[in-house]
Computed example of a mutant assay.
Amino acid sequence: MEPIPDFNLMDITPTIRVNVINQFNQNDFAVISKANQDDMPKNWQCNWTELFAGLEEEYYEGMLKIEHRSSLLGLVKFALYPDPPEQVEFVEILNLEAVSRSYRSANPIGQWLVWYVCHLAIQYCPHGSATQILFLTSVHDAFEYYRDIIKMEYISESSLGPGEDGYVFRFKRQDAIQFCNILEELYGSPTLL
């Protein structure tokens, strides 16, 4: 995928098309684009309406959606730190959710959302191969997904709130690049729309 231009949150989150496998096990495509208030689902685990209302674009927080045939399949909220356009040190995935597999019309969903945020981190964070460029804190139920499917490195426990344990994962630059390359090898390279 070609580089994303200068720092304006609108510019660094262009709409892209990604290859997926639909519910009939056929090649298809989905679209990842900037999410809007009207896209926020009401019946998902995360309160996306509240998360969207708290979005602080001036502090370089963003939210993306992935859709297949106009059906919302996933959302991700992320932030770039510290505030660009100086030097972005790392990117954090703040929230990520996909519809349950029983309601999905295509796969993969979460992997493409992580790919997109990885791509931003690869492009804008420091270039040392061992540099930590992407972090997220997972809930217990998603621990194995991030460790075994996304193949992020687990680094520590963290509290998500009273009585709720979280698990901090990271990608170093070389690992993020490897994750993106593997996904592109499996499904093909995304294209800008």
Rank of each mutant, 00 (worst) to 15 (best):
I149L: 03
I155F: 13
W115K: 03
Q87R: 11
Q132A: 12
D175A: 01
D165H: 07
L183K: 06
E67C: 14
I122C: 11
A53G: 06
A98S: 15
A130R: 00
A79H: 07
S33R: 15
F24L: 14
Q132M: 12
A98I: 02
G163Y: 02
G74P: 04
E67Q: 15
M152Y: 10
L136S: 03
D83A: 13
P41A: 10
A142C: 07
I149Y: 06
I16W: 01
Q123P: 15
G188F: 03
Y167Q: 04
D165P: 09
Y187M: 10
S71I: 07
I32E: 07
I21L: 04
G74A: 08
S129H: 04
E185F: 08
V31T: 15
A106T: 07
A79L: 09
V18Y: 00
F179T: 05
Q23H: 15
F169Q: 03
C46Q: 05
P14T: 06
W112L: 04
A35M: 10
V114E: 00
V139N: 08
I122L: 14
S189A: 14
L134V: 02
M152S: 14
W112A: 00
Q23M: 12
P108C: 03
Y103H: 15
S70R: 12
L9G: 02
I4P: 03
V114T: 15
N27P: 03
G110H: 01
L136T: 13
N19G: 11
Q37K: 13
P82Y: 09
G74D: 01
D38Q: 10
A98K: 11
I133F: 06
I155N: 04
G128Q: 13
T15P: 03
Y103P: 00
L192E: 09
L136R: 01
C46R: 05
L193F: 08
P5W: 06
V139K: 15
Y124M: 14
F52P: 03
Y167I: 03
E92L: 03
E2T: 11
N43H: 11
L186G: 09
M152E: 04
F29Q: 08
L120M: 12
R101A: 13
G110T: 03
F179H: 00
Q23W: 07
